[in-house]
């Protein structure tokens, strides 16, 4: 029940936050705005609109995860609202996990809203929409689970801006991990090979979560890889949250 209370409070906090509402509105405007570029799509309107739709869902939910996630724990410490939580019979682990799951609930709901708008828009434009698209969105959600965990991890010991910068950097590099592996393969210097290998295994491999191109172009998705990627997402997030709890456990307020 205590965990539930923290999850629901985090959800309320984010949903009543103007930043969150602004981001949702922007994402919807971007999706609908895709219609404007019809003359540039050279008859591939359906693909372009699907592509823009899926990418704006990802982009804006990543924005929520990084901006809201990075402030989540810091704000409680800065405003000292945490005093009135941790002076009650609530462990620091419950607090951090509650904050994390609360933000995931927020992301789940915002993705649901954005996806709903996206599908209605496709329906309105008479573009056939298959369930494939949902796969891409589900994958995005598990990618967000990792990003949120990283944002919260940084938020336990740095300021929101630093957390946002670090999380964004990891998000960016996380999408380039296949290149890191290639670099390790072709590099002549053993130091670079070693460094690239370390980064490859240490940083989250986010490129695997991106199946947007496949679903937009109706290519075959390898479900085995997809399931493994989802499992990877869960394990990686759990590990980062474990580290966050370790750091937080020894913290004084």
């Amino acid at each position: 029940m205590k965990l539930n209370a923290i999850i629901i409070n985090t959800f309320r906090e984010s949903v009543r936050d103007k930043v969150f509402i602004a981001i949702i509105i922007f994402s919807i405007i971007t999706m609908l705005g895709a219609r404007v570029i019809k003359p540039l799509t050279l008859g591939e309107e359906a693909k372009v609109i699907k592509d823009i739709g899926l990418n704006s869902i990802t982009f804006f939910s990543v924005l929520i995860a990084i901006l809201v996630g990075g402030r989540l724990v810091y704000k409680e410490i800065e405003k000292r609202t945490i005093y009135l939580i941790l002076s009650r019979p609530v462990s620091k682990t419950t607090f951090i996990i509650g904050k994390y799951l609360g933000l995931l609930l927020v992301l789940f709901d915002s993705i649901l809203i954005m996806t709903g708008v996206f599908y209605l828009f496709l329906l309105f434009l008479r573009i056939p929409a298959n369930y494939f698209l949902v796969w891409a969105i589900i994958m995005t959600f598990f990618e967000l689970a990792i990003i949120t965990a990283i944002a919260i991890f940084f938020s336990t010991f740095t300021t929101p801006i630093t957390s946002a910068i670090f999380t964004f950097a990891i998000y960016f590099i996380g999408h380039l991990t296949p290149d890191l592996k290639n670099l390790a393969r072709i590099a002549k210097s053993p130091v670079i090979t070693f460094m690239s290998d370390v980064l490859y295994y240490l940083l989250p491999n986010l490129a695997n979560f991106n199946v947007k191109a496949q679903v937009v172009h109706n290519l075959v998705i390898d479900y085995r890889v997809t399931i493994l990627t989802i499992l990877y997402g869960i394990v990686y997030s759990a590990f980062i949250m474990f580290l966050s709890c370790l750091i937080f456990r020894n913290k004084d307020f």
Binding site: N9, R12, E13, K79, R80, T81, Y83, L84
Partner: peptide, 12 residues
Amino acid sequence: FLPESPYFYEYL
């Protein structure tokens, strides 16, 4: 426990 000049969640 009541801390010194306590802050609460303003959105509640």
